[in-house]
């Protein structure tokens, strides 16, 4: 799998995502710069990492969604290249319209970092095929505006089409219907709020997040 991670100004989980990918695939991860528009043609996966792109100013992810690199990322996404957005990366995907819904401040009005229990709702996707459907795992959230929100019609459609990827068992931020991650219509794009890249080796607690990357490596080569 040839994977790349986009670096926006004040991305701060870019190294973590790259390290996790390298840990799983054994291959060097490419870093893409927000100001560029050229993206290598042979990428199997593009990751939008967590962090505070553009300082979260204006609205989380809003400015990153309009950066030069995203024009190309959106084109590739529409052409079927798998895209994984984690935390701020999901917010950016929502701001570009690649994924539905938006984000509010956490219900508790505070940033929260702790491991949370989530349930993998779909085990057929390229992102989740190494998990059992309904498997419960614990990985950390770290967000201040991770409170996912969408209108009822959108939510019903997401549920009906099996596009809720992961769901909180212990909702840390007030996300509607406990949604912790969603897919696009073709399940080639996934956004999730918890950080699987922080749980890939035993030193940092456990390896419960590792199989997201292994799923991708297995599915896309």
């Amino acid at each position: 799998m040839k994977a790349a991670v986009v670096v926006f100004p004040a991305s701060n989980c870019d190294r973590d995502a790259a390290t996790a990918l390298e840990f799983v695939t054994g291959k060097k991860t490419q870093m893409l710069w927000h100001g560029d528009t050229d993206v290598p043609a042979d990428l199997d996966l593009i990751v939008l990492p967590g962090g505070f792109s553009y300082g979260d100013y204006l609205r989380c992810g809003a400015m990153a969604a309009r950066s030069p690199i995203m024009q190309t990322v959106v084109e590739r996404a529409k052409a079927g290249t798998p895209i994984l957005g984690i935390c701020n990366g999901w917010q950016i995907l929502a701001e570009c319209g690649l994924l539905p819904g938006g984000f509010l401040r956490n219900a508790g009005l505070k940033f929260v970092n702790r491991p949370v229990a989530i349930r993998v709702e779909d085990s057929q996707s390229i992102f989740t095929n190494r998990y059992e459907a309904g498997e419960e795992i614990s990985i950390p959230v770290a967000n201040g505006e991770g409170n996912f929100f969408a209108d009822d019609a959108t939510l019903d459609r997401l549920e009906g089409e099996g596009r809720v990827a992961v769901r909180y068992l212990d909702n840390p931020n007030g996300s509607i219907r406990n949604i912790a991650g969603v897919f696009n219509e073709t399940k080639t794009i996934m956004g999730m709020m918890p950080h699987p890249e922080r749980h890939v080796d035993d030193i940092a607690f456990n390896q419960t997040g590792r199989r997201f990357f292994e799923s991708l490596a297995g599915a896309v080569g």
Binding site: C13, D16, G50, K110, N113, A142, E197, R198, V200, A204
Partner: peptide, 13 residues
């Protein structure tokens, strides 16, 4: 401490 990100950088044992 839950208001602080204590696990970013992935090296917090």
């Amino acid at each position: 401490w839950e208001q602080y990100d204590s696990t970013v950088m992935n090296d917090t044992a």
